[in-house]
């Protein structure tokens, strides 16, 4: 009886989480996969159409335009977030004055919801009511169309995303840096290594596990960025900041084509899965830096 209890106990402990995970993640994911093979307007029963939605997707020029726009956004956000959070972590890992204050300041945006961040940046960058244009006006400068020009709107969306997430990844890098034994740097100094050489041959390789997590997480988050963009630009001007998740929402809830939207979601899942596998493969190449 005791052995049986001992065997079953761990499963009972994880059971609540498994139930929640099953109801809110596994079931909707499987249902979404099923819906991608149907024509469904939400109001009536889904009708099975096989690969119809996927064929429509691959034949749609709009889908490929949105996908390439999404890739530009993701491959801008991820390297900038990665580089900036690492630099901030290295600076704030040193013994500088008010270290705790600066860490808190950079971390603060990650505690805000994306909706709040989007609304805030919209108010800062608005053409007529924006604080930034008001300040430019006070300084005698011409206002800038931050969010009504396709190029500046894209740059501002990338900027706001990086601003929102950099603090979170900075904390991960700080944890990674604190895990590197100080003796490595002492030995390097004795051997006459410069600061750059220390970074290149000690810090960067030993941060590899943290770097992988940062790249994977920031890639997934960037692909899934919805709320911030929805309230900041509503995908505009025109559709210049409409990315894959915005289009999925648009197709599902505005157009009412849930099957097509689900097919796009399946594509997004496959892209993310593929990218994550590639990132793990690349990271595993060269073995463990500690060895």
């Amino acid at each position: 009886m005791y052995r049986w209890k001992k065997k079953i106990a761990p499963y009972l402990f994880v059971l609540p989480n498994l139930i929640i995970f099953g109801i809110f993640i596994v079931f909707p994911a499987l249902f979404g996969f099923y819906v991608s093979f149907t024509e469904w307007d939400v109001l009536t029963s889904p009708e099975f159409i096989g690969l119809g939605n996927f064929i429509k997707l691959f034949q749609s020029a709009e889908f490929w335009t949105i996908l390439s726009r999404t890739l530009i956004y993701v491959f801008s956000v991820v390297p900038i977030t990665f580089g900036l959070s690492m630099v901030l972590a290295i600076i704030l890992d040193r013994n500088i004055k008010a270290k705790g204050f600066f860490r808190a300041i950079f971390y603060l945006p990650t505690m805000l919801s994306f909706i709040v961040i989007g609304v805030s940046w919209r108010w800062i960058l608005g053409n007529n009511f924006g604080i930034l244009n008001y300040l430019l006006d006070l300084a005698g400068m011409a206002p800038v169309n931050w969010l009504t020009n396709a190029t500046t709107a894209t740059i501002m969306v990338i900027f706001a995303t990086v601003w929102a997430r950099v603090g979170y990844f900075m904390v991960m890098f700080i944890a990674g840096l604190q895990g590197i034994p100080g003796v490595y740097y002492e030995a390097a100094k004795i051997d006459g290594a410069s600061k750059w050489q220390q970074f290149r041959h000690i810090t960067f390789p030993l941060l590899k596990p943290t770097s992988l997590v940062v790249v994977v997480l920031s890639t997934i988050q960037a692909f899934k960025m919805f709320g911030l963009i929805k309230v900041m630009t509503t995908g505009g001007p025109g559709d210049s900041t409409t990315y894959l998740v915005q289009e999925i929402y648009q197709q599902a809830f505005q157009v009412g084509d849930m099957g097509y939207a689900s097919a796009m979601s399946v594509m997004l899942f496959l892209i993310l899965g593929l990218l994550t596998i590639v990132q793990f493969k690349v990271s595993n190449r060269g073995g463990n830096a500690y060895e």
């Binding site: 053409n127 007529n128 009511f129 169309n145 009504t148 630009t233 001007p237």
Partner: peptide, 20 residues
């Protein structure tokens, strides 16, 4: 017409009410 409405989603009611 300010392009901020059709290109930037700015609220036209607010623009009129504020006297802009």
């Amino acid at each position: 017409i300010p392009e901020s409405i059709w290109l930037g989603g700015e609220n036209p009611n607010t623009l009129f009410r504020s006297g802009l």
